[in-house]
Design a binder for these strands. Structure first.
Lengths: 227, 227, 227, 227
DNA sequence: GATGAATGAGAATTCATTCAT
DNA sequence: GATGAATGAATTCTCATTCAT
């Protein structure tokens, strides 16, 4: 989970890529396990503050100062735990990415009929839950990537992973004549974006209705798109 | 359409001393009508440069300097036409917003069968064209709104306008039991986001295939979503 | 009176100091006499606008743009008549300076008794009138000089001229034991500053009362300061 | 006294996100009490540098850069303590204002005869001392107010406070037929302006002579103005 | 472990002055 | 004579990052 920095941004010698390093140098706490209780607490405070700040101001507009104030620590402390703003963000997104990927892999087999819809509905609801928790970070993630390739297309991997899961199912049951890749992407696009709208906008979307629609449209598309 | 700024960002009072000045509205750049040929050209250059820069760097990372360099003018000139970056951006988005809104209103009546799909496909293709031209601005638009409500939820209006057009159609032909609002929003989400993926990502989506899928999924959803 | 620029700021070759130049070069109108009716009008408009702008914004904060807008002309035109902001200001102050100096020289002989007070009162009233007309420029003048010696101590000359007039009178009637220079300066200070307060501040000073006081204090000081 | 800025000029909201923050007031620089020794020193350096710079260049012409260079710090540091030039200036003027006000309240009772003159002379000398120390700021203060009411008429308060002190005395001993308000203002004008002349100009005024004159004219005016 | 303070490289913006028509 | 447009040097201000205690 949250570890203090993985990003390549690190410039201090004690994080030269070799994770094997046994005796962490002084000055920078590095990997979580060596942190005492107090350090753990500070780290958490910073991560939580990060989520908040990125959520409210977005990636670019977020200032280290905001994070530090919210966490009630100092600038000095921040840089004790993270190499820079990007590093904090990476820690956050990695958390999110893992959860999302895991969920993607639980996409159930699609069966026709009401039963299939129900199963799919449940899966979608789970995704919505994740979005509730991590949505803000995902949004910032998308923003961070714009015009900046330093994020190694992390967001893309997320989307692609999700789409791949769908593509597998489509290939299994899908009708001929449709590119599974593209169809899968279309579904992911719809789900992701609607959840996003629901999360950020005043566009009041009733949660249950939204999940219903998402499930049924997805199901229809997977089972009989060109009926 | 594109006018040299109307945004409220202008800060020069101008109405300083002689309030009697009759017609000429606030702002320095003066309204379009007063611009001579040369001014018009410069304004265009700046707007075009703006599109480019916002496209490549995103809203936040874009610097006035970039715009100015690309347009081959000076800083001074920039501020002759726009109050600031935001103002330039507003001019751009207003252009885009209008085009999109207009297109939204041409959404055809949805008829069942292949014919209906074909009509819808054509409309979708038109939208894709618009996205080709203005996509970059739309992307930046989304980014600009994050954590900043100063853009008056313009992007929302765009989405809402689009969704409303769909909602009308759904209400006409749609099956009972589905919230037209939400369903419409889901479709818009799918279309917008897939076009976005297609535009920004390496996720290589074949244009024609993409439009096919979009049209057929939309059509299926509108005509027999819960068959 | 108002002539288009005298300041040394001129950088265009056509004003190299030699006033003898007979055939004024093109481009810059130079000395008033050659201005046709239209030019005269424009020059006046600029001077008047200058008074207004310097009055409301002060010297430093005044922008050529303000002047130009108020005069309903263009920047180009401004520089046709004046070498720069300072030049315009110099034209204005010279006007003021002359008037003030002239008035200073009319300071009447001070006689004891009510009659003397009355005479002095009249003179003071005349000064107040001048201040009404030119006060704003004088204020800006003082400001302009602060931390900037480029104005060649013009304001000082004004003060000194005034003080000298008083000093002459004091020497004539004044009591021994007082430095006429300093006493004169004190009186000038009082008069000038009170007029200034009256002009700028909400400190509501009744004009007639003010002139009364000024005259009587001055008279008392001149006739029987250390009685 | 001198605190690291209280002015409303601060623009960082700071109350962004967590409004719950209890005690710490707005502003970035934080209130004096939280400054450690080093911070105190820096603050002092900046204030002192400010006095110098405003003295030599005046308010408008003063650049933050000048202050920073003189204080041997960086721009960043400056903005750690003050929101901007105006804020620094406000801190300075508040210092000055307080001192002046305090002195104004020590204006002694005016008794006739030589003794009265002597008492008054002492008070005036004290004022001159203050002017020696703070004169430059006062001058800049006057300048700063021109065409700009953002200084909340602080300078006026100064003048008014002084005048009020005199008015009280005049009312006590003064002759009938004179408006104490106006007379007081006239005296303040004389004193303030003569001190100003003495401070800024080459107009060489001998300090002792100046104080003598000031005291005697004031005394004469207060005791037997229309004798 | 923690923190207050300092830093300086950007980025934004203004405005006097010049130029081409 | 007049003007709209262009220019760029000078300033202000921000914020990620480093340092000393």
């Amino acid at each position: 989970m949250a570890r203090a920095s993985t990003s390549s941004a690190r410039r201090r010698p004690d994080s030269d890529g070799s994770d094997a390093e046994p005796a962490p140098r002084a000055g920078r706490p590095a990997q979580g396990r060596e942190l005492r209780a107090r350090g753990q607490r500070t780290l958490r405070k910073l991560l939580d503050a990060g989520i908040q700040v990125f959520a409210t101001r977005g990636y670019h507009a977020a200032r280290v100062d905001d994070v530090v104030k919210l966490a009630r620590t100092s600038h000095g402390t921040f840089y004790l735990y993270f190499a820079n703003k990007e590093d904090l963000f990476a820690a956050l997104t990695s958390e999110v990415g893992t959860s999302m990927q895991e969920h993607a892999e639980t996409l159930p087999e699609i069966t026709p009929g009401t039963e299939g819809v129900a199963t799919l509905r449940e899966w979608t609801a789970g995704l919505a839950d994740l979005y509730d928790r991590y949505g803000a970070v995902i949004v910032a993630w998308t923003e961070a990537e714009i015009g900046d390739s330093s994020f190694g297309r992390m967001g893309d991997d997320l989307i692609s992973g999700m789409a791949a899961a769908f593509a597998r199912r489509i290939r299994a049951v899908g009708p001929p004549g449709v590119d599974p890749q593209v169809a899968a992407l279309a579904l992911v696009a719809m789900i992701e974006r609607l959840l996003y709208y629901a999360m950020t906008r005043q566009v009041h979307v009733e949660r249950e209705a939204m999940i219903d629609i998402l499930a049924s449209v997805t199901h229809a598309s997977l089972c009989a798109p060109a009926a």
